[in-house]
Nucleic acid binder design. Structure first.
Length: 569
RNA sequence: UACCCCAUAGUGUAAUGGUAGCACCAGUGAUUUUGGUUCACUUAGUCUAGGUUCAAAUCCUAGUGGGGUAGCCA
């Protein structure tokens, strides 16, 4: 259930077309299938951090519960202790809550291990399951391929008594890993591989993060998942497309066991350009230090996006904008970025920050004099008020806001040109000072005292308005500029012999350590977000900032039509 | 090789047998003390071939294209 931001004027709650899952839910409601009850669940395996693709699923599952007066559980699918860990459990809970959702029930598949075991025994007693003693290799061989039917396991017709005995001894730890499995007795000739006597239990002498060493046999996903749904009386079990072929098996278990009938529905997982989304790859990026952890601001993980400066609202907004269908598709990453811009444009306070400083001396401004200027905090929100910023003789402007030989459409500063310093004065550049290597080190300018605040009494116009910071008052800061983690739209699209890793963007992180911020930014708190005017949205890094030198992450740039014009030439 | 799913402007999605619509992108213009925001306008689409029907994006068949599936992973 969402805990905030559901006001009527909020874009998330605006009228929109219902997606196909919502239509199914509404049809069930209309038909009174579950007496008006809607119950979903979000079922992550705690073997990695949540990413934006999970956010889509979270928004779908929790969103449906919320919109139809239902409930949504958080359930950890922890049936494979070899890969799972409490570290992941904790991060998943944190991420779900941060996204703004509260689960109605929190469960673990491991809570149900005994019930699962009992139901497996029941299936054996009904002659629907058997202990198979084929090796993994033999099992694969017997399963057959797409070109024909598989072969029945020689153990398929063991007596019920023998199966019961063997299964009990599997549980008791009498056998080594891989010696036996419990299999459902379905159809080795099925064109659906999942129905060719799938494994229900395997022996794994592995310590489980919650049940410890209590079990040495663990249920397989197909057996456990549907039963967990059934136990929790889940009405709509929503998963991704690759589980489509598992649905007949999901149904088979519930039907044979004759327990509460949950239904599985599948939707297309989220793909986004310039990034990767599989847990395997994200893990690889982390473990091989391509990034600096799961919460690296370049990662598509929830924790990465959070550290990058994304808001839960922006992510939820993105998830509702992209829709839910069964079509495989890839969304442009700029959609995600736009969602953030849309929110922060309305909410973020504006500040001045100079990324790559160029000193400007105002020759006709009195030395030592400080003139306090009034600046609007947020033009989109008058209630945000104003603040005072100091104007002095020595300023910093952006290096990119000056060109010695400006091209035609360049509106900013150049020799002999006049621009407006935002909330300051008009200044005109008279002299360019360079070092021995010819690099520009300083600009000599004059200001027009009549233009205080940025208006000329004679009504003369100026094309460019640039930002600035008073040199003596400036706060030094480190600013990290992030770009797409991968250069190509689809990192997985590689020629023979190459891997997605070859598409990593070598310039995905640029650290600027000599940035100059306006004084009001001195005590910005970790996680706080601002718009640095004309540059983008930035937030105080939650890990690296300390009191002597704040560190800001660039969440997203502003739209930049000038940069676009330059790119096009 | 078999089975399953999918196919609508560049991208992403509506229309559920009855006028093909929306958003983003792109382009043009207006406003603007952020080359931001906002506003207006413009471009552009039902994969192909048959069939059913008064009427098909929608139903049927075939083809084409894309995706998925042969873990004792989930």
């Amino acid at each position: 259930m969402t805990t905030d931001n559901q006001s009527p004027e909020h874009p998330e709650s605006e009228e929109r077309q219902k997606n196909f899952v919502e239509q199914i839910v509404e049809a069930d409601l209309a038909a009174n299938t579950h007496a008006g009850r809607v119950h979903t669940r979000f079922p992550p395996e705690p073997n990695g951090y949540l990413h934006i693709g999970h956010a889509k699923s979270i928004c779908l599952n929790f969103g449906i519960a919320q919109n139809y007066n239902g409930q949504c559980n958080l359930r950890f699918d922890d049936t494979n202790p070899a890969k799972e860990d409490t570290e992941y459990v904790d991060s998943i809970k944190e991420d779900v809550q941060w996204l703004g959702f509260e689960w109605d029930g929190i469960y673990f598949a491991s809570d149900y291990f005994q019930q699962l075991y009992d139901l497996a025994v029941q299936l054996i007693q009904d002659g629907k399951a058997y202990v198979c003693s084929l090796s993994p290799e033999e099992t694969k061989e017997y399963r057959g391929g797409w070109d024909g039917a598989g072969k029945d396991s020689p153990y398929r017709n063991r007596s019920i008594e023998e199966n019961l005995d063997l299964f009990a001894r599997m549980k008791a730890g009498e056998f080594a890993d891989g010696e036996h499995t419990l299999r459902a007795k379905i159809d080795m000739a099925s064109p659906n591989m999942n129905m060719r006597d799938p494994a229900m239990y395997r022996i794994k002498h592995v310590h489980h993060h919650r049940t410890g060493d209590q079990w040495c046999i663990y249920p397989m996903y197909d057996f456990a998942h549907g039963i967990c749904d059934s136990i929790e009386k889940i009405t709509h079990s929503i998963c991704t497309l690759e589980f489509e072929h598992h649905r007949p098996l999901y149904d088979w278990f519930l039907d044979e066991l004759d327990i509460f009938r949950s239904r599985q529905y599948e939707f297309a997982r989220l793909n986004i350009t310039h990034t990767v989304m599989s847990k395997r790859r994200l893990l690889e990026l982390v473990e091989n230090d391509y990034v600096q952890g799961w919460d690296d601001p370049r990662m598509p993980t929830i924790s990465g996006l959070r550290r990058r400066g994304y808001t839960p609202e922006a992510i939820r907004q993105f998830c509702t904008r992209i829709g839910v269908t069964k079509q495989n598709s890839t969304h442009d990453i700029s959609w995600l970025e736009d969602s953030l811009r849309a929110q922060l444009n309305k909410e973020a306070q504006r500040r001045a920050a100079v990324l790559r400083p160029l000193k400007v001396i105002i020759d006709n401004f009195p030395e030592g004099h400080v003139e306090m200027m009034e600046a609007v905090n947020n033009p989109e929100d008058p209630s945000a008020g104003t603040r005072q910023i100091p104007f002095t003789r020595e300023l910093y402007i952006e290096q990119t806001d000056f060109m010695e030989e400006p091209p035609k459409k360049f509106f900013r500063l150049g020799p002999g040109r006049e621009v407006r310093l935002r909330y300051g004065f008009f200044i005109t550049c008279h002299e360019v000072i360079k070092d021995d290597e010819g690099r520009i080190t300083e600009l000599r300018c004059t200001y027009d005292p009549e233009t205080r605040g940025g208006q000329a009494p004679d009504g003369r116009k100026v094309r460019g308005t640039i930002h600035w910071v008073s040199a003596n008052h400036a706060v030094d800061a480190e600013i990290r500029l992030y770009d797409h983690l991968f250069e190509t739209q689809n990192p997985s699209d590689v020629e023979q012999g190459k891997s997605y890793l070859d598409n990593i963007n070598p310039n995905s992180l640029e650290v600027l350590s000599n940035c100059k911020l306006e004084p009001s930014l001195a005590d910005a708190q970790p996680g706080e977000r601002f718009q640095f005017e004309r540059l983008g949205y930035f937030c105080v890094d939650s890990q690296a900032s300390n009191s002597n030198k704040p560190v800001f992450n660039r969440s997203v740039t502003l739209r930049d039509t000038w940069a676009k014009m330059q790119r096009k030439g």
